[in-house]
């Protein structure tokens, strides 16, 4: 499973876990997350995330 890391604050979006608190179900792929979604910890946009294969 892929993880996406915020390059500003280090927040990790793990596709396997999703983000149920924000209504993003486990297994939601990065591409299916809305383009105006913001990092929950620091508020940067999706373009400030990098993929990290773990």
């Amino acid at each position: 499973m892929k993880k996406w890391v915020c390059i500003v604050c280090g927040f990790v979006y793990d596709q396997a876990q999703g983000l149920p608190e924000e209504g993003i179900a486990p297994g939601t792929s990065w591409d299916d997350i809305s383009d105006d979604w913001l990092c929950p910890d620091c508020g940067v946009g999706k373009s400030d995330f990098e993929m990290e294969e773990i």
Partner: peptide, 8 residues
């Protein structure tokens, strides 16, 4: 002096 306020 934090990131989130400045993003807003």
């Amino acid at each position: 002096p934090f990131v989130m306020p400045l993003m807003n």
